[in-house]
Design a protein around this nucleic acid. Structure first.
Lengths: 130, 130
DNA sequence: TAAATATCGGACTTTTTTAGTCCTACATGC
DNA sequence: GCATGTAGGACTAAAAAAGTCCGATATTTA
């Protein structure tokens, strides 16, 4: 469907939230204000942390803060951190092997298309969401 | 996952096939040579026909032929013909209504992103697949 | 140091979407 | 009139995405 997953959507919202606040925020705060499932967002935040975009502080008065400037966080990076696959077709994937590979006649052009798409997604950052 | 559906992938392959042959081809021929499920491709061809990209000829020695020049058929058009939705998020969809609309803070930027994506998909045509 | 408040992370269920199948009807050329 | 093709509805299966539940661990503060 060529759609960004909810994980990515929520991830962008959360990063925007952190960028606006510019201080520690808890998952509970972000989830409540943005009407996102707490459990789901908690997982997403962990993935963003693993990537290094944000850092966490456990315990009372803990939460998350941005590790990078908003203009340094591209949509591509968020997608890569939150989704297993981001290729537009099976034949342009590095991890999957296309079942129709032997007879595939669109591999080349699809690679080009994917590169262009990635450029577009790279050109948009959290700074543009503020 | 930001991925084109198999329907679109197969549609592009079939259109490329018709463009190369430049004559009538049956679903059976395309499906066999491209290793695509016959029944699935048959449905896809019907949708492409409904859109007006191709026309059909029933009966013996029938099949499908292109109605437009390859350079006139963009990927966007194929996507629109074969998928119900093609918005990158719920909030940029015209048919759906975003459940988080009241608190959504990314609608504007997402619309921009979607417009850019559509431009990219519009710039690629079947002619580029030959 | 106990309690409260956070993140951490695995396992699980549910829902939605996509992919694929089956069957019958209808049209057409030889 | 029969072989060969599209037309199209209904259905099933598989895969992916979304969402939930629960217990563990870390840290601050009273």
């Amino acid at each position: 469907m060529l759609r960004l997953s909810k994980r990515v959507e929520y991830g962008l919202v959360a990063l925007q939230f952190l960028a606006k606040r510019n201080a520690v925020a808890t998952v509970r705060e972000i989830a409540d204000e943005s009407e996102i499932s707490y459990d789901l967002l908690a997982k997403i935040m962990q993935d963003l942390k693993r990537d290094g975009m944000i850092c966490s502080h456990q315990g009372v008065r803990g939460g998350y803060t941005l590790m990078l400037a908003p203009q340094e966080i591209s949509v591509t990076r968020v997608v890569d951190a939150l989704e297993n696959e981001n290729s537009i077709t099976e034949c342009t994937s590095e991890s999957e092997c296309c079942s129709r590979e032997a007879v595939c006649t669109i591999k080349g052009p699809m690679h080009k298309l994917q590169d262009t798409m990635e450029q577009v997604l790279s050109s948009v950052t959290i700074a543009q969401l503020l």
